[in-house]
């Protein structure tokens, strides 16, 4: 026969997980006025905690969330247009970077003069301006420019391939 009251832990367990309590403790709680009264209090408290009648979402919650998701998908440029832009941008960027650092003027010398002029205007001036800007801040212009463009190209390709890789980043494969 126990001569001490059950602890708070034991009384909570008695109400909630009685099967985990030793038989003498159960016997005490059931025969002791103080402990059984405490158990009744906990029982009422637990019943109150299991009541979710105050938690109500609108009946159309699921359909309205779905509509929001669908709306969000259609407000951004269509997936195919994004893929198309990326699939064009990434190789152009890589070719441009490669040509620039390999000396595109000599490589393009074999092409018609108009093609050479277009490439020079598009990429030559752009890269030269970027290099001058970086040099002003003491950075190795060519290396910084090359690194930035390479990272941009890798990022674009990664974005393009991600859906095909099940949402995983390319570098994590």
């Amino acid at each position: 026969m126990r001569d001490q009251h059950a602890t708070e832990h034991q009384i909570q367990k008695y109400v909630d997980e009685r099967h985990r309590l030793e038989r003498p403790v159960i016997n005490h709680i059931e025969s002791c006025d103080y402990c059984s009264e405490e158990a009744v209090r906990y029982r009422l408290l637990f019943d109150g905690l299991a009541d979710d009648s105050d938690i109500v979402l609108p009946a159309d919650f699921a359909s309205s969330v779905t509509a929001t998701v669908t709306g969000a998908e259609t407000t951004v440029p269509g997936r195919w247009s994004v893929k198309l832009i990326l699939s064009l941008a990434a190789p152009i960027l890589i070719v441009a970077v490669t040509l620039y650092f390999l000396g595109f003027e000599s490589i393009l010398a074999g092409f018609s003069r108009s093609v050479t002029v277009v490439f020079t205007l598009l990429f030559g001036e752009l890269f030269s301006a970027a290099c001058r800007f970086l040099a002003r801040y003491g950075l190795d212009a060519e290396l910084s420019g090359f690194t930035a463009l390479l990272l941009l190209a890798v990022g674009l390709i990664d974005r393009l391939l991600r859906p095909l890789l099940g949402g995983k980043a390319m570098l994590s494969i």
Partner: peptide, 22 residues
């Protein structure tokens, strides 16, 4: 598949609302 997502929301909205409301 939007229907599948709607079903997913229905399955879990009770749990989510419990956490948020409490």
């Amino acid at each position: 598949d939007n229907k599948a997502f709607e079903e997913f929301v229905r399955q879990h909205q009770r749990l989510v609302s419990h956490i948020v409301f409490r």
